[in-house]
Design a protein around this nucleic acid. Structure first.
Lengths: 337, 337
DNA sequence: TTGAAAGCGGTACCAG
DNA sequence: CTGGTACCGCTTTCAA
């Protein structure tokens, strides 16, 4: 509707050149007098620099692209909010994408390509992988990528996860200490590093203590699959269940209690990964493994900034220590926001 | 690192003019032969049009800005995911902002201004208001704005909420039907339309049935405040509590059960707004009011698209019918994703 | 249909 | 410090 106000308009009103206006708004050197006149004129006209034009010439958009597979596991909204705030405070903006439930892995490439088209300065991929071809493209374009909560072996991309293996081991120790001997496992997707690592750490620690799994099933992302897996394990008489999958623990426990009439944790102990906020808020008798979200996000942001600011910075793999087992206490654990 | 591939490079390789390349990629008329040559050259060079440059000249960025106050109420991640997908499928990208917990209302203007600098084509504000000054600025810039889950009376902005008043009334009827007579209310923030409407509908329906509130407190956003409010109401002997605030119901119930040793819902019935996903997943004995998220998002998206596509479209206020009371069943209600 | 040229709204380098 | 000017990468007249 209204005619766009450009730097020329401001220049004309302030009686200076357009270059002067540009300098004032990009923080380059200008005399106090010039600054004053320009600011005044800009204010009067309601002028604001067009970020697109600026990005076009500087080659930096100050936008980071963020891809998240899904948000129904409360771990991700939490992380997303932290990412968003962190980037904002560094002067970056966040362009968000979520993947369709149908073909997440396949869509990811398409979406990353779109972000590249938008000239993003960096990319965060939460719980999704990237094809080698596209990783190469990003590298060629000089766009740093950070994989969050997912490792991709053999890739040169920066990666941040928590110590999933240690987390899995902790669970084993926890269950053994609680006196459980027939322990079942519904694993996370074995195609993901987090899934594999948790399972591996769990089994190893069990073995180190002289025990074997009473049964193992792959749960992947599907509630139904997780529930069927739980059924099979229960038939097999397990008295404890480690659900390594992202947010299946509630579904499983629900099923055990209300379909099978078992009491948790008296009949079967259930322990899951990631579901802390819900478990905590609900004061539920579910024991969960809490990943150190805050530190994971900080590490990812730092890694990305480092690479965006300094082209020569190396992409590294960071494993943030300290997955924490929270007994499903009746009270909300302190320190949880 | 690598030299950027531009339309000129493609043109040179294809033996056509740069204009021709542009036409091919913007879908304008070009002969089949030209299209073939250009596509081939582009493919070989790995060319992709620079969206920034395109937006700069067309004046349309195909980006919608989205501001969300917080994501720790599961209602918002749910909505956000739906928004993101809807916009993606319409060829729009989403730029996300979250507000700092400290000064959300004040920061909102600053952030909206930043989005305008980025030349967004439209704005969605979830649960936050906009100053009149900035609303005017958006209008002047021809940028449509939709307020989601928040009304702002007297503003010309498009607004989508659910029928909060009817929802509040339903809660009253529900509690009365359950035989409660000493009913307390912890309201949502009375500075927001949703908070006011829920409370008003609740009180009116109570009154229509011949009852008065046994007590009312304002909970606002703070867990602590909500808990203290609950304490005061309990001292006042209420046997039912309607928590109109966004995601306080769990905190309140938690407190009642584990600090005060009351059983819910036997001693006190608690009913909240919005917390359905958690309640459902946890199979918790909490009765919640579920807002029709899907339809709310669809309406908001439609309203925004309409205005973005057709400058003459009117901004309207839509109240989506059908807040639903879900008894805190042991099983996850069907139809919840 | 096609190519040449004029911008879109800025930044950056230049000589003054 | 200042103004002039080339240029970022693309879209869009305009003649041919």
């Amino acid at each position: 509707m209204s005619a766009r106000v450009t730097a020329f308009d401001v220049a004309a009103r302030a009686g200076v050149s357009q270059s002067a206006v540009s300098r004032v708004f990009s923080g380059a050197s200008a005399s106090g007098e010039t600054v004053r006149k320009v600011r005044e004129a800009a204010e009067a006209l309601g002028y604001r620099p067009n970020v697109l034009a600026r990005s076009l010439i500087t080659g930096r958009s100050r936008i980071v692209g963020m891809v998240v597979a899904y948000l129904d596991n409360p771990f991700y909204p939490d992380a997303l909010e932290r990412f968003s705030r962190a980037f904002q405070s560094e002067g970056y903006h966040t362009m968000l994408f979520t993947l369709p439930e149908s073909a997440p892995e396949r869509e990811c490439d398409r979406i990353v390509q779109q972000m590249l088209d938008h000239q993003v300065d960096g990319l965060v991929l939460a719980s999704v992988g990237l094809s080698d071809a596209l990783a190469a493209r990003c590298a060629a374009a000089g766009i740093p990528v950070v994989l969050f909560n997912r490792g991709q072996s053999g890739s040169a991309l920066a990666q941040v996860t928590s110590a999933n293996r240690a987390g899995g081991a902790k669970v084993a120790e926890f269950l053994i200490a609680a006196g459980h001997r027939r322990i079942g496992h519904i694993s996370g997707w074995q195609g993901s590093s987090t899934g594999r690592d948790r399972t591996q750490g769990f089994i190893e620690a069990l073995r180190a203590a002289g025990w074997e799994l009473a049964g193992i099933e792959e749960g992947r992302y599907d509630h139904g699959a997780a529930i069927r897996a739980a059924d099979r394990l229960i038939e097999n008489d397990v008295d404890a269940l480690f659900v390594g999958n992202d947010h299946m623990a509630f579904a499983v426990m629900d099923h055990l209690r209300f379909t099978r009439g078992l009491s948790v944790p008296e009949d079967v102990s259930v322990i899951g990964y990631d579901d802390v906020p819900m478990a905590a808020w609900a004061g539920y008798e579910l024991t969960t493994v809490r990943q150190p979200v805050g530190r994971m996000v900080s590490a990812a942001v730092a890694a990305l900034l480092r690479q965006m600011e300094d082209m020569s910075a190396q992409a590294g793999i960071e494993e943030i220590d300290g997955p924490l087992i929270l007994r499903g206490s009746a009270r909300r654990p302190e320190g949880l926001t």
